[in-house]
């Protein structure tokens, strides 16, 4: 790839989300406006524009520069490292969208972001921490179809007291028949409702799809549960102490269990029955 980057990012905006301050830069007014608009939707409107950019720059946690190269292709710099080119506006902004959320998640001061699906059941949060491609969203979608309240299919947002806040972006379901191989599905389209209130964690389920596997949950201690969650805890390096404290508060009193699972449709009633028994 050719290094034909321009450095004259004369237009800039500082935005703040969950306490993380992000500098967006570009040489193009239009592109910067598009970036801010995209940032709003990526963070579900939980974004504030800091008016006095010069003063705000001192407290920047992360910076993105969006621009075109000499050949008119999109490029993105994160801090001072070029991360990618793209010929497609759609894919470029899809990437920016993901990266922005990730960097906010890493640098958030107000919340601990855990990569997890979350639904509400019996007034309590059911967290499903997992890596991508393990069937997390498929299971969340199925739980919603079965009456669970939707909180998130990407991040569990934990506050200082360990309560889970909704982050209800549309679900990203794998779909080979559409562009990018994923489709965006509103929880309402699955017959579900979106949770509005911060709720305590009632259950933490570590589960991933395995062909033909039976749901056979093994209970875990709080310590084991936190250990299992650490790889999914985005700010665990940036703020280890707070991350562990918040996870400890969140998991205290929760049912923590681990099991492989088979097809989401089949296992969902079993999971809900398990929750019915164990959630007070």
């Amino acid at each position: 790839m050719k290094e034909t980057l321009r450095e004259d990012f004369d237009r800039k905006v500082v935005v703040e989300s969950f306490g993380a301050r992000i500098l967006l830069q570009s040489s193009s007014k239009e592109l910067l406006e598009m970036a801010v608009k995209r940032a709003y939707s990526a963070l579900l409107g939980q974004l504030t524009i800091i008016e006095n950019t010069e003063d705000a720059e001192a407290g920047i946690d992360y910076r993105f520069a969006l621009d075109f190269d000499e050949e008119g292709e999109w490029y993105l710099r994160e801090n001072d490292q070029k991360t990618n080119y793209g010929g497609s506006e759609f894919i470029f902004f899809k990437y920016f969208d993901s990266m922005l959320r990730l960097r906010v998640a890493e640098n958030a001061h107000d919340r601990v972001f855990v990569h997890a699906g979350v639904v509400g059941w019996m007034g309590q949060a059911v967290m499903i921490p997992a890596t991508s491609f393990k069937g997390k969203t498929t299971l969340v979608a199925e739980l919603i179809r079965n009456g669970a309240e939707y909180y998130s299919d990407e991040y569990a947002l934990l506050d200082a007291n360990g309560l889970v806040h909704p982050f209800p972006r549309n679900l990203t379901l794998r779909d080979q028949d559409v562009e990018l191989g994923v489709s965006s599905v509103a929880p309402e389209a699955l017959g579900g409702r979106v949770g509005r209130n911060a709720i305590s964690v009632g259950a933490v389920l570590f589960t991933e799809y395995q062909d033909g596997a039976a749901w056979d949950p093994v209970r875990m201690t709080v310590g084991q549960g936190i250990m299992e969650t650490i790889p999914h805890t985005i700010p665990v390096h940036a703020d280890t102490k707070n991350s562990l404290e918040v996870l400890n508060k969140a998991y205290k009193g929760a049912i923590i269990a681990k099991s492989f699972r088979g097809d989401a449709k089949r296992v969902c009633p079993e999971i809900l029955a398990f929750l019915d028994i164990h959630l007070n």
């Binding site: 490292q81 991360t83 990730l102 990407e154 650490i230 390096h237």
Partner: peptide, 25 residues
């Protein structure tokens, strides 16, 4: 356990070419 150093380790990978799998980031 060893904690993954890169926060991207557990989020969806987005790529623009197969080269990206070995590309920084």
């Amino acid at each position: 356990l060893v904690a993954p150093k890169n926060a991207m380790a557990n989020v969806s990978c987005v790529c623009f070419s197969s080269d990206d799998c070995g590309f920084p980031g």
